[in-house]
Design a binder for these strands. Structure first.
Lengths: 206, 206
DNA sequence: GTCTATAGAGTGATAGAC
DNA sequence: GTCTATCACTCTATAGAC
């Protein structure tokens, strides 16, 4: 991938994040890069082509974060993984804020994103079961409860920035998102786990 | 408000729900009603005018539901209020699915919606405190916990249909939303409250 | 109030020179 | 690879007849 193509992808993400995907025209991206629209459409024949490349870049970035590997790292807690996700979502917030709009306009991305979501939920469930194993949270009180909890955590992550934007809140409160997720888990903490939780809460509220 | 204006509002909501606000053109609404676009723009000079009227209708409908009054009704549980909200959201799902898009395109609606959101959250907190009073859930373990819980419940309500659409799930699972909210509250249930919860869960899973 | 016809503004995509 | 110029299309909004 040459320099121009890279620049286009980067600038697209930047503008998408600022203005939303539909409000960014091919011409805006070209102008921001001080190139012509003819040049841009030489590299990406259609806006759909561009979107697909942006999406691929997004997935590649996630893979490089290799959540899975962090998961296996001893000594790094679940909080660290969750924080990584929130940072990722912030970096590609255009996608999380406009997901529906995007998959309506580019339906080919929908299927790919469905898989993405299921993976994310699986990782969260994994983290929960590991926390049970480590004695940080209690066993599942009845079947489906931790499925439901994982779903709630996933929703909180996915819609965190969206709800901020809807409520007209500033976009700099990553810690509040973490705290909310911590609070979802808190009631399931064992006595040992409560200690971990309170320490975490102390860190988050300062 | 005459018949034509009413028809336009109703059909707009119908089409918005099906296709998303930006994908519905003035012409589509006129065609669906078998009237001319000239006629439609005679009644609503701009699309913005139309949106504002649709929004007013939406708020009016919510007021008529008078959540507040149901709240005061003895014998009708919180579950009933939550179900009412989910039904309302389903009826105006275009707004909940495209909230950001809408308030970006029609910024005057943003402020009104901010107030709306704060009211919703206040109602939820109220329900939680009433549940404490009735001995159904425990007292707040530390300050801010039930604020956080109320926020989680609000997010679940607001984004329920959005996450269904994103995940490519069918739109007929109102009970799953209720169950998820019930599960958010479950760990705070008192021994008395657990009974209520299990009964509710039984109803929801059949 | 309702219609037809069309102006006018915006935007994605293309053609052809350099 | 990059540019300028422009086509072709979509959609909102308006004008004027009935």
């Amino acid at each position: 991938m040459n320099k121009t193509r890279q620049n286009i992808i980067q600038k697209s993400i930047e503008l998408f994040n600022e203005q939303g995907v539909v409000n960014v025209r091919i011409r805006d991206i070209a102008d921001a890069l001080a190139i012509s629209t003819g040049n841009l459409t030489y590299h990406y024949k259609t806006k759909q082509d561009l979107m697909h490349s942006v999406y691929r870049y997004m997935i590649k970035t996630l893979e490089e974060m290799s959540i899975g590997n962090q998961l296996m790292m001893p000594g790094r807690g679940a909080l660290h993984v969750v924080r990584g996700y929130l940072e990722y979502i912030t970096k590609f917030r255009f996608f999380y804020q406009d997901t529906l709009e995007i998959i309506r306009a580019y339906p080919e991305l929908a299927k790919s994103h469905h898989q993405q979501v299921e993976q994310e939920k699986a990782i969260i469930k994994n983290l929960l079961y590991r926390a049970i194993g480590k004695g940080e949270i209690k066993g599942e009180a009845f079947p489906g409860l931790y499925d439901s909890l994982a779903h709630s955590i996933w929703m909180t992550l996915h819609f965190w920035l969206t709800q901020q934007a809807i409520r007209g809140e500033a976009e700099d409160k990553l810690e509040k998102g973490l705290l909310m997720i911590a609070n979802l888990i808190y009631p399931y903490a064992t006595e040992q786990g409560v200690g971990v939780f309170l320490k975490m809460q102390g860190e988050l509220t300062h």
